[in-house]
């Protein structure tokens, strides 16, 4: 099969937003999410280098996970309106994120050009399912898997800082603001900045290093391997 595509196949930067929608997110936090999703869409589209390549998927999780938006060109995306429900199952969210990315990227077609996917994981609580989330996390982040993703995690509210740090490959953050709605806004603003700066870095040889520019409202958490000794 020819390596030369017979149809236009612009490069794609797959991004998956994995959001906790358990009951603890009810009220101002989820209202802030719903208010910001249209803004996220517009900000990404307004940046030509980002809007041309970024494709966004959204997964929510509580007791179970739901793919609320498949990997989508934001020009045609209608941001979902999220509602709270159930407990907190990280495993379901991570597993569904992997499935969403795998199906989305493979759906681009053979030979399509894409950058290493990035998952932005946001939670305000602790994993309270009996299901072990570390297996789905390993599947999601495997470097041997061509769909393997980087995971950037964000915690706030009642989230366990240590666990949030474990649900990441290189970057984990905790929102300092005690106001959960403000924390959500800061986290999602950081997600957008990261998508933009990372997209910009793709357009150079060997570029594409994930970057997460954060302000003072977020504290970077030490990764597990850095705290062993």
């Amino acid at each position: 099969m020819s390596e030369f595509s017979e149809s236009e196949r612009p490069p794609v930067f797959p991004v998956c937003l994995v959001l906790d929608v358990s009951w603890s997110m009810a009220g101002p936090p989820l209202a802030a999410v719903n208010a910001m999703l249209p803004e996220i869409k517009q900000v990404i589209l307004d940046d030509h280098a980002t809007g041309e390549i970024a494709r966004l998927a959204m997964v929510t999780f509580s007791d179970h996970a739901e793919r609320v938006m498949p990997l989508t060109d934001l020009k045609y995306a209608v941001p979902p309106v999220l509602a709270p429900q159930g407990g907190t199952n990280f495993a379901a969210g991570l597993r569904t994120a992997y499935e969403t990315l795998r199906e989305g990227i493979s759906g681009l077609g053979r030979g399509s050009t894409y950058h290493r996917p990035v998952v932005f994981f946001v939670s305000d609580g602790e994993h309270n399912s009996s299901e072990d989330w570390t297996g789905p996390f390993r599947d999601l982040t495997s470097k041997e898997d061509k769909y393997g993703a980087e995971v950037v995690s964000f915690g706030f509210g009642q989230a366990n800082r240590s666990v949030i740090a474990q649900v990441s490959t290189n970057f984990a953050f905790y929102a300092n603001d005690g106001d959960p709605a403000a924390a959500v806004r800061e986290i999602l603003s950081t997600v957008v900045r990261s998508i933009r700066t990372t997209s910009g870095s793709f357009n150079s040889s060997g570029g594409g290093a994930l970057s997460v520019p954060v302000g003072q409202a977020l504290s970077q958490l030490p990764l597990p391997q850095q705290t062993v000794n």
Binding site: P10, V12, T72, Y76, G104, G107, L108, G109
Partner: peptide, 13 residues
């Protein structure tokens, strides 16, 4: 024109 390839799951545009 053929498939524009502008994103998975979006169908034809």
């Amino acid at each position: 024109v053929p498939d524009a390839g502008d994103g998975a799951g979006t169908g034809s545009d």
